[in-house]
Amino acid sequence: MKSLNLLKANTRKEYIELKRYLPNTIALLLTFYIIFLAMFAGIQVIGDPSTQDANIQFVIVNYIFWYLSMMVVQDIGWQITNEATQGTFEQLSMSPMGVWRILFARLIALVAVHFLIVVFLLYLSMFTTGQWLNIDVISLLPILISTLFSMFGLGFIIAGMSVVFKQVQAFLQILQFILAGLVFVPVSVAPILAFFPIVKGVDLVRGIMIDGITLSQVAFADYMILLFNAVFYFVIGLVFYLNCEKVAMKKGLLAHY
């Protein structure tokens, strides 16, 4: 019950801030849309006409995932950096729920709040390009949830780094390109990439949305890799964060910027 209250409080906070600073949210959406239009135009002008449709579909799925991963992974880093500067992070650190639970609640809240934006962006992209993808919610949902767990793991790693090093802004800028790499590079380039966070999930989502495969057509091995990645990266991220918290407490960094 306490965890549910924690989740509710953090979802409400994310929603309030997104709504209260609506112009900022709209500017963010516009920026994303403009970049998408540029990519779309690029494919049309210099892309191979025979693979144009496939390329556009590929870009839509990847681009939406990139937005989601940035909102989740990068945003948690920004939040910690900002809160440490403002002085609210030490209040969070004093919660008997534990900071990791608050951060986990925030990660879920970020997904929940940005989900509507993601859906909007998805339909806007499909409408703009005229490429209507297969939105099979039943098939997409379990894959999406598993992928989100590996994203949360990455979020915890970024959070841990932010707690110890604080000034990670430059890294957070670079991170968006790392995330783009994970999302845009197909598994077919190198099979080992399937074990990287997010990659397998995006690959399967592409299979459903572009190729129209269903959940029952997904290979058992793919499920296992997806599940392994979800558990592995989530646990690694959490353990990394908890250790960073210990280091921060030992060095007295938890409350200082």
Binding site: M1, N5, L6, R12, K13, I16, Q86, G87, Q91
Partner: peptide, 27 residues
């Protein structure tokens, strides 16, 4: 510990109270 710096400046008075209570597990 940091006076007014311990608050969320972009939230209202009531929202701050409710948010911090939520972070301790209270509805």
């Amino acid at each position: 510990l940091e006076g007014n710096r311990n608050l969320y400046w972009r939230l209202t008075v009531r929202e701050n109270l409710e948010y911090f209570a939520g972070n301790r597990g209270f509805s």
